[in-house]
Design a protein around this nucleic acid. Structure first.
Lengths: 201, 201
DNA sequence: CCCGATGCTGAACACTAGTTCAAATTTTTT
DNA sequence: AAAAAATTTGAACTAGTGTTCAGCATCGGG
């Protein structure tokens, strides 16, 4: 007999499919949205979800496990939105709308902050960011190919960085309460996109 | 007798001019640089400076007081750098270099994060950001006035938002470990500035 | 009907943080 | 040198966090 697995006396963990588990993830996302990632402690999350802290740890042994799960869910949602944008009639502008969407950007900024301080999570977020960018590069290449080398042109990869960067800047400054120049920056992006990709009207 | 001031039995606070005070501020900035603003606790700062926690509180009754002082010092330094950029022969590119300077951007991103979660500090940071922007708008107006309305043009306020935004994006993504498209974005900015403001060579 | 798997709870431990304050120490003033 | 003022320290209190774990509850199948 004997043999079997040399399991290290694993602790019990709640099922992936559990409703409670989903509830915890949702509550965590809310907390992050409302109070920032640094408020996303297992205890606060528990309070928010109306559960006991130890139950949170039953589903997510460590806080990193929880945050990772939350990010994964968020990333999946964001991927869906991008897919939808790409599938739309005007993918570039849809993408720009995606980048300047406050609610999404709020989370993505929190994840970024999270990544910088949580090594365990950084890799996953970095990989996802990079994959998103590459996907966009391909899209831009197909869509704008010829035009990108014109005098107003911009390599696809640069375009992606620039749109994402401006979108994030607008959001972060708004959160701070600064908005000088935002109208102008937005108008410029619109204008630029119009030259790059004349509206088909 | 009596009368005098209705002082609320104020606690004693260390002198503004104290060396220890300066040391504490410097240590705090280091901690923020190396471990992020969330690591800037009075106790960690004390450890870092080789002092006792209570001494930190002698100079800065609350953590917000400390962070505010640190920000003020940082803002002053940043103002100096901007003044230097403006006084240089090529202010716009000097400013862009300022925005893409890693070491400065690192701090400014931390301050931004700080502001979003520390109401007591938000106002000061917001005011400073706005003042910086307005100063730049003026500069761009004087410098680029005519050209800004051309087909490639951009209102000065927009230009400031865009350069700051792209600079921050490049930094944050680098910190994360993502760099796809960075070369291209940087090259595009350089190219754009060249069209807007031909190098005087 | 019992039994094991699964879900959940309470209590506890170790640790970090902010803050206060009386007392000790050092420096400055007189 | 005595007195006053400024600086520094030690110890403590409060509060929050991550995490563990033994055990209670429940529930579906054998």
């Amino acid at each position: 007999m004997t043999v079997t697995a040399p399991e290290v006396t694993k602790r019990r963990i709640g099922a992936e499919s559990s409703e409670t588990r989903a509830l915890i993830i949702a509550a965590t996302e809310m907390v992050i949205r409302e109070e920032g990632y640094s408020a996303a402690s297992t205890r606060r999350v528990a309070l928010r979800a109306g559960l006991k802290p130890s139950l949170v740890h039953y589903y997510f042994p460590t806080t990193d496990d929880l945050l990772l799960a939350v990010f994964e869910r968020g990333a999946a949602k964001s991927d869906e939105m991008i897919e939808a944008a790409i599938a739309s009639g005007d993918p570039v502008r849809a993408l720009w709308r995606f980048f300047s969407d406050d609610s999404r950007t709020a989370l993505s900024v929190e994840y970024l902050a999270l990544a910088i301080r949580r090594p365990a999570i950084r890799a996953k977020i970095a990989t996802h960011s990079d994959a998103m960018r590459k996907q966009q590069v391909e899209l831009f290449e197909q869509l704008l190919g010829a035009r990108l080398n014109g005098p107003d042109g911009c390599p696809p990869a640069g375009l992606s960085v620039i749109l994402a960067g401006i979108g994030r800047a607008l959001f972060m400054e708004s959160a701070l309460g600064v908005s000088t120049g935002h109208k102008e920056a937005t108008a410029w992006v619109d204008h630029w996109l119009d030259r790059l990709l004349p509206p088909t009207d």
